[in-house]
Computed example of a mutant assay.
Amino acid sequence: MEIGIILFRTLFIYFIIIIVFRLMGKREIGQLSIVDFVVSIMIAEMAVISIESPEKPMMQSLLGIGVLLILQVFFAFVSLKSEKMRHIIDGKPSVIIDRGQIDETQMKKQRYNFDDLLIQLRENGVNKISDVEFAILEPTGKLSVIKKEEEENEDDPGSNLFPLPLVLDGKIQEQHLKRLGKTELWLRQELKKLGFRDLKKISFCSLEADGIFFIDLTEDD
């Protein structure tokens, strides 16, 4: 009888967890944030307790899984609306190599050493640090690498920058403008030329390497 209960609970919890992770959204395992990872471990632990302890009501585990699902969906919704909460929950990317220069200050902040850097550069098919224009440590721990172009445009240093969000959720990203050597006034004037006067209607805006703006408007508009 107990074996039958365990088999039933295993199958039932299996399908419940599939549904829960579908509702939580699609992310690759390597792209899970710290919060996603913690929630996944807690759900797995509750599932194991429910299967290994048939004498305990399964509703207890289902209740805990349901609470975690609600919290995860809530935080995901808040992250979509608030840049500050998104950074708190998911973290921010860190530029480890900036225009060919290693930023050791950022490495220390992230407790990231040169062995880590070299390993992840090799994983990206890069053997020499001198070949790297930018290396960004993502919140997931993955290193995104942008190699140097064979011929750099010396007349326009900004053309060698990776696309930085200049407007995010209707807010100007001043630190990214400084990296480009531009001002908020310049950005507003350029957007006005393109017919965009209200920045709150822009969900994402970046300056591509060819000097063309990529602009995405909020769905409400």
Rank of each mutant, 00 (worst) to 15 (best):
R22E: 04
P157H: 07
F77Y: 14
E28N: 11
V35Q: 06
V132A: 02
K171C: 06
K26Y: 02
K171T: 14
S159G: 01
M58L: 14
K192W: 12
L185W: 05
I18R: 00
V145S: 09
G141M: 03
L168V: 08
T140K: 06
D115S: 10
L69K: 11
E52I: 12
V67F: 14
I119W: 06
N127Q: 13
R86W: 05
G66C: 09
T140S: 15
D116P: 00
E52N: 13
G91E: 02
D90H: 10
S82I: 09
I202Q: 00
F213T: 02
D116C: 01
S144N: 14
I96P: 04
L168R: 11
L11C: 06
G141E: 08
L63M: 14
D169C: 08
L187F: 02
Q173G: 06
M107T: 03
L68F: 08
V39Q: 06
N113L: 11
Q120L: 07
P157N: 07
Y112Q: 07
G25N: 09
F12A: 05
T140H: 05
K81D: 03
I88S: 03
K109L: 12
E83P: 00
A44Y: 00
M107G: 03
I70T: 13
L23K: 06
I172K: 00
K142M: 12
E55C: 08
I70D: 06
I5P: 08
I3A: 13
N113Q: 05
Q31P: 05
P165T: 13
I136S: 08
R197N: 15
V48S: 02
Q106H: 13
E123Q: 12
A76E: 14
G195S: 10
K147T: 11
D221Q: 12
E184S: 05
A76V: 15
Q189H: 06
I172L: 04
E152L: 04
V35M: 09
F15Y: 08
D90C: 10
N153G: 03
E219P: 07
E154H: 14
Q60S: 12
H87F: 12
P54A: 13
G91S: 04
I136E: 05
S50A: 15
